[in-house]
Design a protein around this nucleic acid. Sequence first.
DNA 1: ATTAGTTCTAGTCAACATGACTTTAACTAA
DNA 2: TTAGTTAAAGTCATGTTGACTAGAACTAAT
Lengths: 236, 236
Amino acid sequence: MNTNSANVAERRLAPPSLAISTVIFALRPSEKSGRPTLWLPLVRRIREPYKDMWALPGGPLAHDESLQDAASRNLRETTGLAPHYLEQLYAFGGLHRSPTQRVVSIVYWALVQPTEAALADESENVRWFRADRLGELAFDHNAIVDYALWRLRNKMAYGSIAYHLLGEFFTLAQVREVYEAVLDRQLDPANFRRHVKATPEIEETGEYLQGGKHRPPRLYRFTGTPGLGPDNRSTP
Amino acid sequence: MNTNSANVAERRLAPPSLAISTVIFALRPSEKSGRPTLWLPLVRRIREPYKDMWALPGGPLAHDESLQDAASRNLRETTGLAPHYLEQLYAFGGLHRSPTQRVVSIVYWALVQPTEAALADESENVRWFRADRLGELAFDHNAIVDYALWRLRNKMAYGSIAYHLLGEFFTLAQVREVYEAVLDRQLDPANFRRHVKATPEIEETGEYLQGGKHRPPRLYRFTGTPGLGPDNRSTP
DNA sequence: ATTAGTTCTAGTCAACATGACTTTAACTAA
DNA sequence: TTAGTTAAAGTCATGTTGACTAGAACTAAT
């Protein structure tokens, strides 16, 4: 049975290794309805364990970069994108997350804008998936994505985070669509409008979105700043 | 200048080391007013760096324990207490947190009940301090405590977390005192009463607290459960 | 040009929550 | 017996939220 007991003993004594992973959310139009839906990029594992399965982008922490920088680098290396919003999600440190060694993963979650997300890198080993239609992922990454989704919905219900999924200018209907996509329920347009107009971070521009089939809606702009962590405290 | 360049080079190549720390809050009566106030235990550092300064309890992560278990162990070893509430706070990983080596600290925060806290261990190297009157602590621990306090206040404003700082039975006035101590402002007794009585997790017992100087208040009991993290999701 | 259809925008109304305040009940200590 | 204090319950004005109505502004079809 114990064909490898020496290695096992070595691993038991070695300190847990530390990794950074990132859950990256972006909005893309659904193939069918065309309405915006949540997508995220995954990378295919090219080695054991979980070889050939999809996993969150991640890697080791370089000795000369902060946790947040490492997450940013992850994001850039796998998708070529820069995050519009980046925040620590949680540190996962269960004993059996990886079958071969003890790994503690500090996970970040990011939001990127759809214009950028549309031209994000995709390749044999990097692909975008609909957040509600992931298959079985490597390690405990399904649970991590679930938790990230829960946090996203939570922040959405309170803070002004939806705007980081949109471009610089947007209509109130577009904001509502983001909320509806993430929270997965319909919202009353009139009441939603009242709600958004009451938040001071939303600025009315003089422009209107032309080219639609109906009355052209006014364009708005978001003037707030991201909330990142202990440094920049936003909503819990 | 470079008297120690070999060591510096070694440290640069070594992976960041991983530590667990814990911010432990308990209620104790203030010496002056006798009203409950927030206290937390600190340990005196017995070696460099920051020798003789006070620091949060913490230590390395054993290879066969989860992050949460490590935090629990911290708590037990420094104070002899078991936490009533324990939740991950944040992972701190700045490059210069420790002058000698790169350390990533996963910090937990805990609440313990006052009856236990009263008989907590105290010694030459372990002492309790008022949360609003800490001196200068080792490393970035002042910032960590600040953030923990912010989280505590935030959770207090929403969720039903105050009860983990109280014993099994309590009066509504005692709950209010906890809120007033943590949020540091007076609350209207009548309105606070209405608020608490509207939360379903609070159960009215038939008992009354006798021995007071005035009309005896009814005793209540908390029937909810802690919210811990991705497993047990509570309020953001 | 007119009309129908759709969305944008503004407003009303009731239900509910919240803060400030008043009143009554219940107990202790003088 | 009375004064003093806290517990407990209720009142009132204000603000927020969800459900709903209605007009304004535009496009596309007639």
